[in-house]
């Protein structure tokens, strides 16, 4: 269970997160929706330890990870995987080396075992062995996302974070990525946080949804509850109305 309590963060005097409180139940996929620039990625970066909050707590299994540092924080980070918006694949390494990277850095597994695990992940992501030797620049957007997902999952994390997992992908590839998220979640049972503005597609993977607006969570519940929510801001966003987007 991950619990975010009253999280506040400002940049240059402007409050981006204004008292976020949110629970992510163990083994479930929590989706945070909200328009672009509302602070969804900032929230995610706090949970994975890339940003420190001005105030508030991020409790993971009873431990406030926003106060952790050094070795304890590194140990905590080994428990999760992150799929970044652009994939964040290392330019100088090919697909195989990118996926193998966490294993080579953080384990002492023999090369044969690493190769086997990388190939298993590639197969799970529906990628052929031809992809292995390609550099990130030579991969399509969908392939990059799947290689990045394979890398994020190679150490079998307990918690997964997805930052805009389908941004920039065509509808069939978006569905493929969401299908892969559902499939890997069923197989591994990880706890997940997905931040996305891709509606209604993101509802297909969500166990619970929260909407971030003006630095606060203004609605939370199951996908059905959100879709039937009475708040006009929520309804306006779900329907993609122009006046809301320009507000």
């Amino acid at each position: 269970m991950i619990k975010i309590i009253n999280l506040v963060k400002s940049f240059n005097g402007q409050k981006v997160l204004d008292g976020i409180t949110l629970e992510m139940p163990r083994g479930q996929i929590t989706v945070v929706i909200g328009k672009s620039g509302v602070g969804k990625s900032v929230l995610l970066k706090h949970i994975v330890g890339l940003l420190k909050p001005d105030s508030g707590q991020i409790i993971v299994d009873g431990q406030d990870m926003s106060r952790l540092g050094g070795r304890k924080l590194r140990e905590f980070k080994r428990r999760f995987g992150v799929l970044f918006q652009g994939g964040a694949l290392f330019d100088s390494l090919n697909a195989f080396e990118n996926i193998a990277f966490p294993l080579r850095e953080k384990t002492r597994l023999p090369e044969a075992e690493i190769a086997q695990r990388v190939r298993d992940r590639l197969a799970q992501m529906q990628l052929t062995s031809e992809v292995e030797t390609k550099l990130p620049d030579e991969l399509s957007g969908g392939m990059k996302k799947r290689v990045a997902l394979a890398r994020a999952m190679i150490q079998e994390p307990e918690i997964m974070f997805f930052d805009e997992p389908v941004t920039g992908l065509d509808p069939p590839m978006s569905n493929t990525v969401f299908h892969l998220i559902s499939k890997t979640h069923r197989e591994s049972g990880y706890t997940a946080l997905v931040v996305s503005h891709d509606l209604p597609e993101v509802f297909q993977v969500a166990d619970q949804v929260a909407m971030l607006h003006k630095g606060r969570i203004i609605a939370a519940g199951t996908p059905e509850e959100l879709q039937n929510h009475s708040d006009p801001v929520v309804q306006s966003f779900i329907r993609g109305e122009v006046d809301f987007l320009e507000a």
């Binding site: 994975v48 890339l50 980070k77 999760f80 652009g86 964040a88 694949l89 330019d91 953080k106």
Partner: peptide
């Protein structure tokens, strides 16, 4: 710089590297 803006440095950090 490119590693920074494409989140490769953040990716290293989240892998505890």
């Amino acid at each position: 710089g490119i590693m920074r803006i494409t989140e490769q440095l953040d990716a290293l950090d989240t892998m505890a590297v």
